[in-house]
Design a protein around this nucleic acid. Structure first.
Lengths: 153, 153
DNA sequence: TCCAGACTGGACAACCTGCACAGTGATTCG
DNA sequence: CGAATCACTGTGCAGGTTGTCCAGTCTGGA
């Protein structure tokens, strides 16, 4: 899938994104065209989904992160999904196995605000039950480099 | 915290990251220095955490995403955290309220591979119980723009 | 009214990008 | 075995962009 050079490119651009292709090629001791071609390929194959800036919700004032598990009425997934996507504090929703039907990642300004967001959430009659888990602290921050390294043959 | 111009800058760089400061200033009808100053400030205040490439685990061959809730022995959080951070498939771990003690986001190549990852996970004696939720589909993909828009006064 | 902060428009040198090219080495295939 | 294919190298060029200045203007607040 990817080789050691790809991994080193990903590592380099993850730790120093503003580095540029030329400087990267110098650091990696390869030709500029090679780095360019690798980056193009990584983008084409979808490994690199994009170079969007990473926005920190906490810095925007949304200091509370929580996960909500939703049980929904059968066949109502579409409408619930539409409902959830209209709530800006809902950052991510997955269909899951197990107890609940949907798992949402949500943020709020504080605990009071979280109550408001959850009230918004459950404002849909097709949502039967919810369980909310508040994230108290981040033990391992979102990361991808170890996985990239482990993906190299 | 941020104003409408900040929000438009974030939107623009999120949807077209390779755009550059100059082109952005043209699109937004403001001076280049303004965009540059705003970007610097957004980075200084931590709103923009970075411009790291977004790596898609699925494109790397890790097609299964799951969430594992771990109950751990009291006072063992540190050692468990160290244990988890050594597993590359563990992308993110939070301390949470509620049933479990830790919530992990993990990926694996397929369901068989997920079993291996979970076996790795529970290989720590301080982990008392685990519940695993497999993400079957993504209803709302990770997003931040609606939140950015809602943060504007 | 005055001031500090933000925005504008302009300038400059230095740098980087996108693109192209020929040459080389390794691997695959007939 | 020879040929073809592919990736990488090293190089060059034109054009655009960046980082960094500056002076002037505008705005809201003291």
């Amino acid at each position: 899938m990817i080789d050691a050079l790809d991994a080193r490119i990903l590592e380099l651009f993850t730790s120093e994104p503003r580095i540029g292709v030329l400087e990267a090629s110098r650091r990696l001791q390869v030709a500029r065209g090679t780095v360019q071609a690798r980056l193009d390929r990584l983008r084409d194959t979808g490994v690199i989904a994009g170079f969007a800036p990473t926005v920190d919700p906490a810095a925007l004032g949304f200091r509370v992160t929580a996960f909500a598990s939703l049980d929904i009425r059968q066949g109502a997934r579409e409408s619930v999904a539409a409902h959830l996507s209209r709530i800006p504090e809902v950052l991510e929703v997955h269909t899951i196995t197990g107890q609940g039907d949907l798992l949402c990642r949500i943020v709020a300004r504080d605990n009071d605000d979280l109550q408001r967001v959850i009230d918004d959430l459950v404002g849909d009659d097709d949502i039967v039950r919810t369980t909310t888990l508040i994230a108290l602290s981040t033990v391992v921050a979102p990361r991808i480099l170890p996985l990239v390294a482990s993906a190299v043959p």
